[in-house]
Design a protein around this nucleic acid. Structure first.
Length: 328
DNA sequence: AATGATACTCGGC
DNA sequence: TTACGGCCGAGTATCATT
């Protein structure tokens, strides 16, 4: 029985029985300071064992539920873009009118509660939904939207994470409205052309409008944690073989060929590095790439002295081949 | 110099 | 005292081609 308990949902890496991180945690757990991304061992120290349940993530199950919710939302809204496994962005001429019905339909279908935000901009809607968590509905007009966003902590703005927030605070901005005091040139210098311009607009109350289009997946990757950290190419390549098969199952199912293969390395200091190379002609999922993998691994080991903790493989630059099915 | 392709890092969820 | 996943896309740097 899990009623009244702290529920910690974890990604177990398999390295040791408790190694891994927290994926998510219920509100009782959050009150104790447990949060996503936290090492499982740290969460254990913060939670009373008798009142806490640690569960592994079950992504297949979440995907199934996600599909049910997707169908509900699409039955109500003119335009829908699924943003992640548990977030949808939608447009409708009668957004404020249907929001409550959508909440109720999702509850009826899945017995889950959700939060809905309605606002003139996508950014405002997302923040309104976040603000009304865990079971809320918040509808804003343009004035209320500006009031909410400009008065918000920079860290609460989707698109501003820990690193960006820290850099903004170093420039004197704690609240969104403070960003307007930073010269646009400084924003561009610090955050780059695109992000700098976006932040500048944010400070001035210019929030991007629509949803954009649903995007096609452009790469597939599989990453895993090694039993122990190592620099042994044989160990690394062995793990990569497993991961390659998994990624290629996806390619096969989606009937995709690829032109780019990349290897992802996470070193003992938890820093991520990548090495990739592209082929002139697209490769099918049955083609051998062991030479290329070895090249990329050797190349990385030659230029980085640290031990490797996790490795991954990535396929990208998918090609539409038209009638050339003989490749497979 | 301009354009497009590729390589790589960052960070959200 | 420390403890640490598995994805994905965006953005930008860098390279190749013309």
């Amino acid at each position: 029985m899990t009623k009244g308990k702290i529920i910690v949902v974890c990604v177990y890496s398999g390295r040791t029985p408790d190694s891994g991180v927290v994926s998510t945690v219920n509100y009782d757990g959050r009150r104790l300071g447990i949060h996503s991304g936290m090492p499982i061992m740290q969460a254990k120290k913060l939670s009373p064992p008798a009142d806490t349940v640690f569960l592994p993530v079950d992504k297949e199950y979440y995907s199934q539920i996600s599909g049910y919710i997707d169908a509900v939302i699409r039955s109500y809204c003119k335009k829908v873009v699924q943003a992640s496994i548990d977030e949808w962005n939608a447009e409708d001429d009668n957004a404020a009118g249907i929001a409550k019905s959508i909440k109720e339909a999702i509850k009826k279908e899945t017995s889950l509660v959700c939060s809905v935000g309605v606002s003139p901009s996508l950014l405002g809607a997302k923040m309104a939904a976040s603000k009304s968590k865990p079971d809320g509905l918040l509808i804003l007009d343009r004035d209320k939207e500006v009031e909410m966003i400009s008065g918000s902590d920079i860290e609460k703005v989707p698109g501003i994470g820990g690193k960006t927030a820290e850099a903004l605070r170093a420039l004197g901005a704690t609240w969104v409205k403070d960003i307007a005091k930073i010269p646009p040139l400084v924003l561009v210098e610090t955050f780059g052309r695109k992000s700098g311009a976006w932040l500048n607009g944010l400070g001035k109350g210019e929030y991007d409008g629509g949803l954009g289009e649903e995007k096609e997946q452009v790469e597939v990757s599989r990453i895993g944690t090694l039993k122990e950290k190592t620099r042994d190419p044989y160990m690394i390549l062995g793990k990569l073989d497993e991961l390659e098969s998994e990624a290629k199952e996806w390619l096969m199912g989606m009937k995709k060929s690829y032109k780019t293969v990349g290897i992802i390395f996470v070193t003992e200091n938890l820093k991520t590095h990548t090495k990739s190379s592209s082929f002139k002609n697209p490769k099918g999922w049955n083609e051998d790439i062991s030479k290329e993998k070895k090249m990329l691994v050797d190349e990385f080991l030659a230029e980085n002295p640290l031990e490797i903790r996790r490795v991954g493989i990535r396929f990208g630059n998918f090609m539409d081949l038209g009638g050339q099915t003989t490749l497979f």
